[in-house]
Write a protein that binds this DNA or RNA. Structure first.
Lengths: 142, 142
DNA sequence: CTTGACTCTATAGTGACTATAGAGAATTAA
DNA sequence: TTAATTCTCTATAGTCACTATAGAGTCAAG
């Protein structure tokens, strides 16, 4: 199976696969006579695992940790739980921040219905004058 | 006022200020004899505006647009409204995705309480076998 | 034999910063 | 006055998880 087929089976881009290889998440595959990468079912399964974790918004660092555990199946799985709990907690924080952000934007939106000169625009005024403190969502990039 | 004072007043890092200057969001300030940047109240207000928009998770591109409108106060503010509406909609999408993600993680968390060999860990099993489709949150980086 | 689809490597760009190195400027303490 | 500390300067590279591009090589079908 060549890289294009693998990409289709996992629903991701070819470049992403090469990127994962470079990052050490996918093992270096065999090569054809013409230097094409050749994959098997093991790679499909592993890549799907990675993509599933990514769809859960895990970082590659987290996924790397999970893969290592997967590769040592006799270890205790407590760490898996910790990892997931931590991740979940970050998501909770992010949800909270986003909900507040949404409220804030809605309130701001109320302040102008358009068709005025910018000078009188309630939204711009709101952005300039409000002294509320929004929980910033920028760094909780979960 | 030097860059450190400005940073304190706006609650951001010094490097961030220089970055905004490089990106054209803040005008190039006067310089002292020793080549230090010198700021006034105009800069404080403008930087606070930018930071407030950032705390609302707007991109620098969006903020640039708002600043341009602010700098031309006779224009119609319809565009301000459009910009905010668009932004709000993106946030709604992101909230939706995150809530689904959260549900998914919670479900996964249920599947293992720890203290087993990784081989038997319900979470890893869930990650390997589940064929659900999660609305990916990765590209809606609002 | 050529067309087209596929693949290769290497490099640069994205966004919004953050980190670092190595230097000069200004302030404070001895 | 000197020394130490703190602040600032520029320039460059790194972060994350990709995405985009250039230029070349490989392979199957017509």
């Amino acid at each position: 199976m060549r890289i294009g087929d693998l990409a289709k089976r996992a629903g991701c881009e070819i470049v992403t696969i090469r990127y994962y290889e470079k990052e050490g998440l996918l093992p270096k595959p065999a090569r054809s006579a013409g230097n094409f990468r050749l994959y098997g079912d093991v790679h499909v399964e592993r890549l799907q695992f990675i993509r599933r974790c990514r769809s859960l918004d895990m970082t590659l660092r987290e996924i790397r940790a999970l893969l290592e555990m997967r590769d040592n199946p006799t270890l205790d799985c407590g760490e898996v739980n910790v990892l997931l709990d931590t991740h979940l907690q970050q998501v909770e924080v992010r949800v909270e921040a986003l909900l507040q952000l949404r409220q804030h934007l809605l309130a701001l939106r109320e302040q102008c219905s358009g068709a005025r000169p910018v000078q009188a625009c309630g939204i711009l005024r709101g952005l300039i004058n409000c002294n509320c403190h929004v929980v910033s969502a920028e760094h909780s990039n979960v």
